[in-house]
């Protein structure tokens, strides 16, 4: 029982960290960004590469992994996404999917297609009410909650955050105040991408690292974003944990159905609350 809840919260936390970027990109730029999965995968692979560089020092390696995706995110934003502003959403989907294809193939070229397993970087376990819980998972849950509060403060109290929130509401109005909204949006895009890489880094020790790991998670994150409401930060937070719990509970009864159940829930939510895009 407790380990099911803990598992659900872990998955929810990771889904939340990855989904923020998707949700923000959608809210600010009206673009469905398949390339997000690429950033996530690259984060995990850079972690693997830098782990051997730092003699297995996990924190240093993960910082490198998160920072390493900044130039990649900038390139994607500058040369693909910025050219698709205000265009039909179909072209954005296809173009970012193309970026994902190119990137995944490049990863296969560099690192090969064989899955790479990673060991738990903490290794200790806590005993809560008679259940052994890996400390690493508890750290993930705590970290995702930290990210949530940091983002809340960021959007509430910093001027950059305020501009972005205002831009989400009405882009033209902010622009008419003489603020270059697009520049702030690309900053948000880079932050979202860094968080996606962080998600990849955190999730890597729980699963294996392989070139197609992004596809799977991306679908789940789309479900999170659609259920939570596009561009809504708190909605994303809640729906990530809710869907994480759905996965954990379903997985307890019938393992392979866990991910499919998320889509069933999403379909049900969309029936009652269709989103006009």
């Amino acid at each position: 029982m407790i380990d099911t809840i803990a598992y659900g919260l872990t998955i929810g936390g990771i889904l939340y960290i990855i989904s923020i970027g998707l949700s923000l990109t959608f809210g600010t730029m009206r673009i469905v960004n398949f390339a997000h999965a690429l950033v996530y995968t690259v984060g995990a692979y850079v972690l693997v590469a830098s782990l051997s560089l730092f003699n297995g020092h996990f924190i240093a390696a993960s910082v490198v992994a998160v920072l390493a995706v900044i130039p990649l995110a900038y390139l994607i934003e500058r040369y693909v996404i910025r050219r698709l502003y205000g265009e039909s959403i179909d072209y954005a989907i296809i173009a970012t999917y193309a970026v994902l294809l190119i990137g995944v193939d490049a990863i296969k070229w560099i690192w090969g297609a064989i899955p790479i397993p990673l060991s738990d970087p903490v290794g200790k376990a806590w005993n809560i009410l008679g259940v052994e819980l890996p400390l690493y998972r508890i750290i993930i849950i705590a970290l995702s909650i930290c990210v949530f509060f940091i983002l809340e403060l960021f959007f509430k109290y910093t001027i950059v955050g305020k501009i972005v929130v205002a831009g989400l509401e009405d882009k033209e109005a902010v622009r008419s105040l003489g603020i270059k909204v697009d520049r702030y949006f690309s900053l948000v895009f880079v932050i979202g991408s860094c968080l996606a890489a962080l998600g990849g880094v955190l999730y890597a020790p729980i699963t294996t690292v392989h070139p197609y790991m992004g596809f799977q998670v991306l679908l789940l994150c789309f479900a999170v974003v659609l259920v939570g409401g596009l561009g809504s930060m708190r909605g994303t937070f809640l729906s990530a944990f809710a869907l994480g719990m759905v996965m954990a509970v379903t997985g307890r009864f019938w393992g392979p159905a866990a991910e499919t159940m998320v889509f069933v829930v999403m379909a049900i939510v969309l029936i009652f609350k269709p989103i006009e895009v």
Binding site: F26, V32, I89, D90, I93, L219, F222, A223, L226, F263, M266, A267, L270, P274, I275, E276, V277
Partner: peptide
Amino acid sequence: TTGACFALINLAF
């Protein structure tokens, strides 16, 4: 649904 939602809901199904 339209646009992205249509694409993604089909993907989910």
